[in-house]
């Protein structure tokens, strides 16, 4: 596991300032999907009962139905677990030195990127839609000087506050490094990215 106090490639005085996950509404969506899928066999059973058909009474078709139901439950369980893992492993960490973006896509695709605060040129927060406005969550985009695609903090809580915090950290970082050029981290040409290569940045 990753310890927030000892981030990979961390510098001596690096401190975690912001730690973000997706908003809890995304977790709720996963549970809602699973709940609806669990209702399907209940509905089938209820309809069969209305037609006075006992699905599990037959000596052959009873076990067949039970095995199909068990397989269905196992599949729903696996999908739910994978979605929760996906949610849990999507994290965004802002320290006083850099921004780390770690995203899990399914079980076999993981993207970890980081960008030094000095490289950040523009930060945008976006809240659109009724639910996002009501629950105050949305996206934050962090654009660097390079032509790389911008970082996207997906569905994070209070995107405006996050934007302000990062802006302040960027200002502090730029001022610090202007006065003390030795502090500048090496290799500031472009943000580093490791896709499905956990040895580079173990996040």
């Amino acid at each position: 596991m990753i310890c927030l106090d000892k981030l990979p490639n961390s510098q001596p005085e690096e401190v975690v300032k912001v730690f973000l996950r997706r908003h809890w509404i995304d977790l709720l969506r996963i549970f809602f999907f699973s709940f609806v899928m669990l209702l399907v066999p209940v509905a089938v059973y209820a309809i069969a009962q209305l037609g006075e058909v006992d699905l599990f009474a037959h000596p052959f078709w009873g076990p067949v139905g039970a095995l199909v139901l068990a397989s269905y439950l196992l599949i729903i369980f696996s999908i739910t677990l994978t979605e929760i893992t996906d949610y849990w492993l999507d994290v965004w960490i802002v320290t006083n030195e850099r921004v780390i973006n770690a995203e899990q896509h399914g079980l076999f695709n993981r993207l970890v990127s980081e960008v030094h605060l000095e490289q950040i040129q523009d930060i945008t927060s976006e809240t659109k839609g009724f639910l996002e406005t009501f629950l105050t969550y949305g996206d934050v985009y962090v654009q660097t000087a390079g032509e790389r695609e911008r970082f996207r903090f997906k569905n994070v809580d209070n995107p405006d506050d996050v934007k302000i915090t990062i802006s302040e950290l960027v200002t502090i970082c730029k001022n610090t490094h202007q006065h003390d050029p030795k502090v500048i981290a090496p290799g500031l040409g472009a943000p580093t990215t490791s896709q499905h290569h956990p040895d580079n940045v173990k996040l």
Partner: peptide, 11 residues
Amino acid sequence: NIFHIKRYAIQ
């Protein structure tokens, strides 16, 4: 899933 959580999740 357990492997991913064990390896990549924040402690």
